[in-house]
């Protein structure tokens, strides 16, 4: 109710909401979907596989 009436009477705040919506679109629809997958969730089906992978990684790390 507050939101509905508030939005109706809003003046300069409308541009703020436009910024919020554009920002959320960029973050969740573009960045999250195309650039920021959760690697371990995406690549592996179970926690056991994820543990196995991370153990492999942290016991075989070094830099060039």
């Amino acid at each position: 109710m507050f939101y509905y009436q508030g939005f109706k009477t809003m003046t300069w705040g409308k541009s703020l909401w436009a910024i919020i919506l554009i920002k959320l679109f960029i973050m969740f629809v573009i960045l999250k979907v195309f650039f920021f997958p959760d690697i371990l969730q995406k690549e592996f089906d179970s926690d056991a596989e994820r543990s196995n992978y991370v153990l492999e990684q942290i016991t075989n790390s070094n830099t060039k």
């Binding site: 909401w17 919020i20 920002k23 959320l24 973050m27 960045l31 920021f36 959760d38 371990l40 991370v54």
Partner: peptide, 20 residues
């Protein structure tokens, strides 16, 4: 309004760039 949820990006990065 401008700053809200900018911190969520850090959580994205944890999962993608800092998965170990």
């Amino acid at each position: 309004a401008i700053g809200v949820s900018t911190g969520i990006i850090l959580e994205f990065e944890f999962g993608t760039n800092w998965s170990n």
